[in-house]
Design a protein around this nucleic acid. Structure first.
Lengths: 215, 215, 215, 215
DNA sequence: AATGAATGAGTATTCATTCAT
DNA sequence: GATGAATGAATACTCATTCAT
């Protein structure tokens, strides 16, 4: 009140949707790189080329930006999962494709690994508060179940395999490789980030999984 | 108040080793709960009942306390791994024991999960700077290799399985379950933290792994 | 969402005077509750159900809204003061009526207390900039003077009493009771907000004042 | 963690009590001038020539600094009240002295007016949270009661006057004069800040009060 | 007349770290 | 060894105000 404030004219062109989108993109990059605690709202604004207050104008708080970023990440992977179309492949090939998808996606989207780890480290509170994240059910479970059923019929998969447990196993094998690759590389003295190492590990999981499903 | 001066006894008895140990324990608890970025030096001092400056006196910086905490975590698990004595069991039982150990340890030491995830999220820079962490080689790889050899000889395990890749697979299946259990529980609407769920998953991994190793 | 565009009807019907009035009412409520520094333009707009920019459109700045709110408060009390018609009562009853009015008005318009205190705390700069506030002379002084004259003639009031000083005394006794009632209640351990306490204090002021005016 | 921070050597000489005292003094000045909402922690630190964090180190939060400042103000006036020694004077002179004290103190300590007004505007929450403020009972009430008793015995004061109500009346007449002098001066076109005006008002209150107490 | 988007300067508070004793 | 005092940079979030439509 005592200090006179004369704001300077706005420089950013009026394009609300683009503005909001660029802030969200910046937030995703920031959080992927530095995590929830390490991410800075200032940095998000800077990355987006936006005024910091705009971040709050559109998202309200750091936690809500994080939730939006997380939702976007989930939406991305869900969208690709829906395109998998495992039903179009024979059971064995379907399973291989699932493994490859899981491995490739994580290899190319390290940011998803970071966000997932971070979210769990924080008690999954953003996911729990996100209708979007909870309701956008993964199509994977049903796909896996259907693939298992076909494999059982063909006699190449054993019965009694729980789709969710299988999913967790495959996701675990792929996720862990990239999530903890750095410490393992340092400790075991074997560079797991090399393409050949990844390729070899891929073959291992494929044969391991297919064998693991045999009747 | 200002006139009478009672020489206040130093609250903390001079016991350097105990002091350092209590600070380290406090640091492990703090980082396990809040991560590297979320952990506070103040909080560590408070938890340890020590003066904040003591933390710096003994450890130098936040990063070095973190490294010490990480090293202690690694030392703990390495110590237990060494007691596994897989060589005393038939190959199949040895493999089951390995799986159970991996699962139980993570179930009971969630803090290790957090530290591992955090360390990797930060580029594993503390592990790389830690001779202790890198040199205290895990005895597991050799144990697994030996177990695989025996299983091959007995004809119950196939050949060509890489011990490290197998280790990554098993560690991945167990780690992922606990590391990302919260988001999965929220999203899949199935409480994976229940003992029955864990027990069921354990059976799944055991049979999946044993089958996966069959010739 | 972006394809179908339904021309959303302006929520607020074009009714400038009603709009301005609702903003003013909102401002009065806001400033009465939170003071000049504590009051928020955003909050005023929200209370008024209006766009924030409208507040600026009609009032120009926070200080000017405050001035308008203050003027409205003064106008309210002046309006009631004009209806007092002390001349219609015998001097003693007129004086009692004046006291009751002062006490009752403040009891029922705590917001006026806050605005008065706030305005003085800020150097009365809004009042000084307000022709309205300064020109709408209070009719009280002349009423009091006339009542005193009649009392003197009747021999029940002493001479030489300055109307403004008497006004300040009465206003002070009533204002202070409500303005600082909270701290006094806390410190003296006697709840001055109770109706009985107010009623008792009223009797005290009445007899105190009448006695104080005796020749 | 990623940014390296190398603090520069401390410049402030080590004198905790002086430091804390200077911060408190600065806080009192700041809040007296600008109120609770208008006061800035930054400004307090600057006034005290101290690092801002020191303010938090010693006082914890803005509200607690305010409470400390308020307590100090109360302690100041209580200390002077205790020196009044009304019992040493004849009842009439005692009453005059009480009035003069009240008027003079407020005339010379405008900051107390501001703090009192502000505290009440904020619901007296700091006083309620302050044991010091509540327990340091004002000696005035007992002094007034005793003075009234003596006056009654001598037949110069009437009976049945409640000490607290009398206190409120006197405090009100003096407080209001200074608290709202600025708006009244502006509105009534009579400068109440002039020494002559104050002096005249003092005489008015004295005779008004003494007359008001006559049997 | 009315609305939503955008801005810059602030605002209380926190944090890792160092100094002095 | 141990403690309390002090520092500077930062951190999430707010606010009055203006621009563009």
């Amino acid at each position: 009140m005592s200090t006179t404030r004369e704001p300077i004219a706005a420089k950013r062109p009026r394009n609300p949707e683009a503005t909001k989108a660029s802030i969200l993109a910046a937030a995703r990059a920031e959080f992927a790189e530095r995590g929830l605690d390490g991410g800075r709202v200032d940095s998000i604004a800077r990355r987006a080329g936006a005024n910091k207050q705009l971040v709050y104008y559109y998202f309200g708080s750091k936690d809500e930006i994080y939730r939006a970023a997380l939702e976007a990440s989930y939406a991305d992977i869900r969208s690709l999962e829906r395109e998998l179309d495992l039903a179009a492949l024979p059971p064995r090939e379907a399973m291989i494709r699932l493994i490859d998808f899981s491995l490739d996606y994580l290899a190319q989207h390290r940011e998803f690994i970071r966000m997932l780890a971070d979210e769990n480290a924080h008690g999954a509170r953003h996911v729990r508060n996100s209708d979007a994240a909870r309701q956008t059910n993964s199509p994977l479970l049903e796909m896996i179940a259907e693939t298992l059923r076909r494999g059982e019929k063909e006699g190449i998969f054993r019965t009694g395999v729980d789709p969710l447990e299988l999913y967790v196993s495959i996701a675990g094998m792929t996720f862990f490789y990239f999530a903890n690759g750095l410490t393992m590389s340092a400790i075991f003295g074997r560079d797991l980030t090399q393409p050949e190492a990844i390729s070899s590990y891929r073959d291992h999981i494929v044969s391991f999984t297919l064998a693991g499903l045999r009747p």
